[in-house]
Design a binder for these strands. Structure first.
Lengths: 246, 246
DNA sequence: CTTCACACCAATGTATACATAAGCCGACCG
DNA sequence: CGGTCGGCTTATGTATACATTGGTGTGAAG
């Protein structure tokens, strides 16, 4: 899980983070194309959870041979997005409430550590300015009630900080888990209350980062994630009553 | 990185954790065989860091065709154990001091979270007994100066606790990072001082776990990892002066 | 009617064949 | 003598062919 994905994607479909636009997709190598294309379709719901496809069908879908598709599927399986059952094809994984909780737990543990590292390294003036501006933008979005935009900015904010941590392996692991929680996040997006608490917590965390205070950063970010995770779990619980599919 | 490796391996070569004995290796499917075989050779140093082999050579080495070998190599690359450079073959990665630090950082963040989860879930009497006995065994090994045995027990102790956390994704991620730090750990093994501090900390952590006190567990385990990680980094620094290869 | 067994089929896992493109070497030109 | 251009070699990436194995369906027996 660690260590992969050097190719930085541009483009923005939903989040700046890691859903590529599929824009320059034709010029990619076949395996990468298969991987990104399938990941995109899964994360955006174009391939719904529960869907099962044979390797041959996937290959047909992407107009490729089975070989690169298979390799892409292996990666997706390691990321936890699909399940392959040897004689039954690959199934797009549904997320149970428990799955979502597990993912958030792991993701948060990693993210808090990333923040700690950033605090220890310190912020440059430019980085500080950028992050402050993002916080302001989120507050603006909140004020105008644009939750979708807020969510995107939130992703960018977290991703921006994580990108400063200087630990590539940690970042790669974070990206994988981020991909897993993405669908559930999108699902509960419309249910979210105005994120005033998050905005305040972001400011608090940013202050701790600016101070370069590692312990304070850990404490605050940990609290932020804890609260946010619990809230999201609650929303998801309501939104699917523990049935399954995310 | 999350989510993989259901097949529980038996056998013990060095650690109970995740270096399979390669014992029933012949009856495995080719891809799995390639993966486990290569991983084994890398972790035990039979394939030294820096070694570069072509896909064809690997295939020959394992008496397989390139296809399953290639798939295994993809997994190993995602785990960060090898690097593939498109026209230059796959290279067994060396670990720099910085790499090792990054791995430990990530690993520790995950492990602490796993411990927290165990604390929250609570220990059964049997689990408590087992863990207490392991602590005692470690103390015995320390008393007799058997550092290698202590190290194995330490691995087992940590692995045992992690296995109780109830979060499969977290465990899988931990296993991947564990594999990465294994070589460096083995390398500095003979340099380690008597682990009296670790023994005391293990007791303290176990006490916190028995109390089911999540915050206390986090605090203590975090302190334990912090200290142990720093110590290991220092040993590694001494042992290779920042040259590279681990 | 239910259950067990056998045979057939098809999907995967593996091997191989082929195309592409990158590195390397040599030759030629400046 | 050095640098650059071009062709050749070869490793990889992809496609395809083949074998294996497990699942399913049918039929017969209890």
């Amino acid at each position: 899980m660690p260590q992969a994905e050097p190719p930085r994607m541009r483009g923005k479909v939903r989040s700046a983070r890691s859903i590529p636009s599929l824009h320059g997709l034709t010029e990619m190598a076949a395996r990468e194309r298969a991987y990104h294309d399938l990941r995109y379709r899964i994360l955006t719901g174009r391939l719904a959870p529960g869907t099962t496809l044979l390797e041959t069908e996937l290959a047909g879908l992407l107009s490729l041979s089975r070989t690169p598709v298979r390799e892409a599927v292996i990666k997706l399986e390691e990321e936890g997005l699909v399940e392959v059952r040897p004689r039954h094809g690959v199934t797009i994984k549904a997320l149970s409430l428990q799955d979502f909780a597990n993912i958030l737990d792991t993701y948060s543990a990693l993210e808090v550590r990333a923040y700690e590292l950033v605090a220890a390294r310190g912020l440059t003036p430019e980085q500080t300015r950028l992050l402050e501006r993002m916080v302001e933008d989120m507050e603006t979005a909140t004020a105008t009630g644009d939750i979708a935009r807020w969510s995107d900015l939130d992703d960018e904010f977290h991703a921006e900080i994580v990108s400063l941590c200087g630990n590539q392996r940690l970042q790669t692991a974070l990206n994988a888990f981020w991909g897993q929680q993405y669908r559930a996040r999108m699902m509960i997006l419309p249910l979210r209350p105005l994120p005033d608490e998050s905005n305040a917590e972001h400011r608090a965390v940013l202050d701790a980062l600016k101070l370069g205070d590692r312990d304070l950063t850990r404490e605050r970010q940990n609290a932020h994630r804890d609260r946010a995770d619990k809230q999201q779990l609650e929303l998801l619980r309501r939104s699917l009553g523990s049935s399954g599919l995310a």
